[in-house]
Simulated scan of single mutants.
Amino acid sequence: MRSVLPALLILGSLSACAPQGVQAPETYPLSGRVSGDWGSNPRLRLALVGTGIPGVVKNDSAIGQNLVSGGLNTWEFGFDLPKPGAFNVAGVYQVVVFDDANNDTKYNVGEKFARNRQWLIVSPVNGNFAGVNLPDFLGGAEALPAMTLSSGWNLYDQSLPLGAGNPSAFTTLRDYDLSR
Rank of each mutant, 00 (worst) to 15 (best):
L160H: 11
V49D: 01
N128I: 07
V109Y: 13
I63A: 10
T148A: 10
E111S: 03
T148V: 08
V56H: 15
S159K: 08
Q65V: 04
V125Q: 14
R180Y: 07
L81K: 00
S35L: 04
G36T: 12
N126L: 09
Y93E: 01
F137C: 11
A86C: 11
T171K: 14
S61T: 10
V125P: 06
N126H: 12
L144D: 02
V49T: 05
A114M: 05
N88S: 11
N126A: 08
Y93G: 01
V34E: 02
S179H: 08
W119E: 05
V132Q: 08
G12W: 13
L162Y: 05
Y156Q: 00
P84H: 02
N88H: 11
V34H: 01
P19N: 04
I53F: 05
V89S: 13
G165Y: 12
A130P: 11
G163R: 15
S168M: 12
S15H: 14
V97I: 08
A114K: 02
L134Q: 12
L67A: 09
P6H: 14
G32F: 00
G39Y: 10
S3G: 06
G165F: 09
V125H: 10
K58M: 14
L162H: 05
R45Y: 05
G152H: 01
G85T: 13
G110A: 03
N108R: 10
L46A: 01
N108V: 06
I63C: 08
F113T: 04
A86I: 07
V132A: 03
S150I: 04
N41W: 15
L81V: 02
P167D: 03
F87E: 01
D175R: 12
S179G: 09
V95Y: 00
G21V: 07
